[in-house]
Amino acid sequence: MARKPLINAPAPHTAGALGTAAVMRQVLYTTLPGLATLVWLFGAGPLLNVLWAALVALAAEALMLRLRGRPLALHLSDGSALVTGVLLGLSLPPGSPWWLILIGSGFAIMVAKQLYGGLGMNPFNPAMVGYVVLLVSFPLAMTRWAEPGQPFSLSHSLSLFLDLPGADGFSGATPLDTFRTWVGNAPLLAEQPILHGHVAGAGWEWVNLAFLAGGLYLLARRVIGWRIPVGVLLGLAAPAVVANLVDPLRFAGPLFHLFSGATMLGAFFIATDPVSASTTPRGRLIYALLIGVLVWVIRSFGGYPDALAFAVLLLNLAVPFIDYYTRPTAYGHRSKRQ
């Protein structure tokens, strides 16, 4: 009787982790409420963004893997390219033309990820690299957001996406833009309807709440750790509270900051990208706090209305440094190192 040989494997023999692919899947599912809210507010544009960006990301990943002679199935199945594409798609203004997304998503995967050696090797968050490349190259297209709550029809969204001639008609700015425009002017600030939603800026508050809900689910399922989201939100809210107390006309309040722009998306989905974040437990908290503070600083004093992408990339740069100085003291070395 020919018996199959017994499995010979190193310990441990059970795995408690979901697996990278499962983690990525969970992340994808939990972005859905946010995406749905965006669609509700802006029409089909965000959905087109996400689908197209994801498709481009997958294609770019496959192309690069082939060029680098890596096993396609194994690496594509980890789902990381898909997540990069989706996150980039979620960050782009609705009505972005197809070529813009193609450039951003392609650059994110090909240059920011694969040229650095693929998953796990990229020092920068690929989605944010793609975003910043677009923001710097096409500043106009990247800052034109439609009025939330007045969604475009499907045909309008499509013609914008396909960049058909005559398809135009942007109006409105985000709450962050509006605040910047009228900063310091009490009556005018009070007149802007977009600044006065239920919790924060109208419309955008729902987007942020939806991403918060998804993020809390990830946290509860322990797909992400608490340090990064809590750090980012705290780093953003703390200076906002202080500054708002000092000069409420010049500095928006913490709620406004927390529920505007890409705050929740960034705190729960973007800054938590494990590859480009700090790896030590203490380092992660510092990393996240600094992202939060930097977002507040750039929003309050910088030239761009939102700042998440820049803050994340800048902190990516600081990761080796943070990691080095936050190395935990190994067991049995407490007396030696102190």
């Binding site: 795995a15 990381s80 750790g225 590859v275 790896t279 030590t280 437990p281 190994a330 067991y331």
Partner: peptide, 27 residues
């Protein structure tokens, strides 16, 4: 106890450091 799944690239998630009882940086 099924066959171990294939080893994939380290995504630097740091989970290993969080659970290490010796406070090492396993990654």
């Amino acid at each position: 106890l099924p066959e171990p799944p294939p080893e994939q690239a380290c995504i630097r998630c740091g989970d290993c450091a969080t659970v290490c009882p010796a406070s090492l940086l396993p990654q």
